[in-house]
Amino acid sequence: MATAEVYNPTTVTDPKSTWFVVPTDTLSKLRFLVKLVEVLLSFVAFILEEVVTSCISCSALYFFEFISCTAFLFTLLLLILLSTKLHRKVGITCWPSLDFIYTAVIAALFLLASIVFSADNSKTSLEQTAVAFGFLSTAAFVVDVVLFWKNNGFPWKKEGKPEASNGNATPATHETERLNTE
C-alpha cells in the first residue's frame, strides 16, 4: 500500500505500450479502414456463396469460394499483423512489398473469380448478390493498391536514399582532400 502512494504520482504510463498501433510506418489510418472494408466485403461474399444450395456447374462456385475465403482469412491476418506490434516480432522485414504484392494479386484473383462466377451460375438472386459482393471486394482491393501506390510508390523501387550499411547510413559525400598533406 505504501509503495503505491510513493510511485503512483510520479509514474507515467507509456503511451506506446498499447497493442493497437495505427497509424504506423506500414499502415495509415485510411488504409486501415480500407483493409477493414476488404475483410468485411470478402467475408460477406464468402458467406453468400456458402449459402448457395445447388449449382449447375460448380467449378466457378468453388473457385469463387476459394478466392473469397482466402481473401477474407489472409487479409484479416495481414490487418491484425500490420495494426499491432506483431509485425515487428514475425521476422519479416519487407512488409510494404508483401502488402502491396498480396493486395494486387488478391484484387486480380477476386476480379477473375467474380467474372467467372458471374458468367457461370444459375442466375439466382443469391448468386448474383455474391457476385456483386465479389466485385465490391475487388474494388476495395484496387482502392487499397492505388492508395498504397499514391502514398508510397512501388515498395521495391529505390528512391535515391542511401542504403543502410551495418545499421548506419552510408555517407553521401566522400572526402576529396587528404588531412595530412606534406
Rank of each mutant, 00 (worst) to 15 (best):
L27Q: 08
L82H: 11
Y62K: 15
F32T: 06
Y62I: 09
L48V: 01
K89C: 00
A107K: 05
A71E: 10
A132P: 01
A2T: 00
V143T: 05
S57R: 11
E175I: 03
G160P: 13
F135A: 11
R31F: 01
V146K: 03
R31K: 05
S42L: 07
L126F: 08
V21T: 14
I67P: 02
T93W: 09
L111F: 14
K85Q: 12
N180Y: 13
E49Y: 09
T13M: 03
E38H: 01
A139K: 09
N152P: 01
T10Q: 08
E175D: 07
V105I: 15
C69P: 00
W95H: 05
A139F: 15
K85S: 07
G160L: 08
V51P: 02
L33S: 12
L98F: 07
F64C: 07
K158T: 02
K123E: 08
V12C: 07
F46T: 02
N166S: 03
W95Q: 06
L179T: 02
T3A: 00
V37P: 00
S97H: 08
V44T: 14
G153H: 07
I47D: 11
V21R: 14
P9Y: 04
A164R: 14
A104V: 05
L86I: 11
L76M: 07
Q128A: 06
I80N: 06
F64L: 05
P23V: 13
T170D: 06
R31A: 02
N166G: 12
S97P: 01
K35T: 01
I106H: 04
V21F: 04
F63V: 05
S68V: 13
E49G: 13
E177H: 14
T84W: 04
T18R: 15
S165K: 15
C55H: 11
L61D: 02
E163C: 06
L48N: 02
G160D: 05
T75S: 09
T26W: 10
F133H: 02
L147D: 03
T24S: 15
A108L: 15
T24P: 00
S97L: 11
L36M: 13
L48P: 02
R178Y: 02
V90R: 02
A2G: 03
K161L: 08
M1L: 09
D99A: 13
P23I: 12
F64N: 03
K29C: 12
I106F: 12
L79I: 11
L48D: 05
T138E: 09
N180C: 10
A108H: 03
V105K: 05
T11Y: 02
N168D: 04
W19C: 08
E163K: 14
V143S: 00
W149C: 00
S54I: 14
A169M: 12
A108Y: 07
L36D: 02
A169I: 14
Y7M: 01
L136F: 12
A132V: 12
P171K: 13
T138K: 06
I80K: 07
C69V: 14
Y102A: 08
V12Y: 05
C58L: 00
T24N: 13
E163G: 10
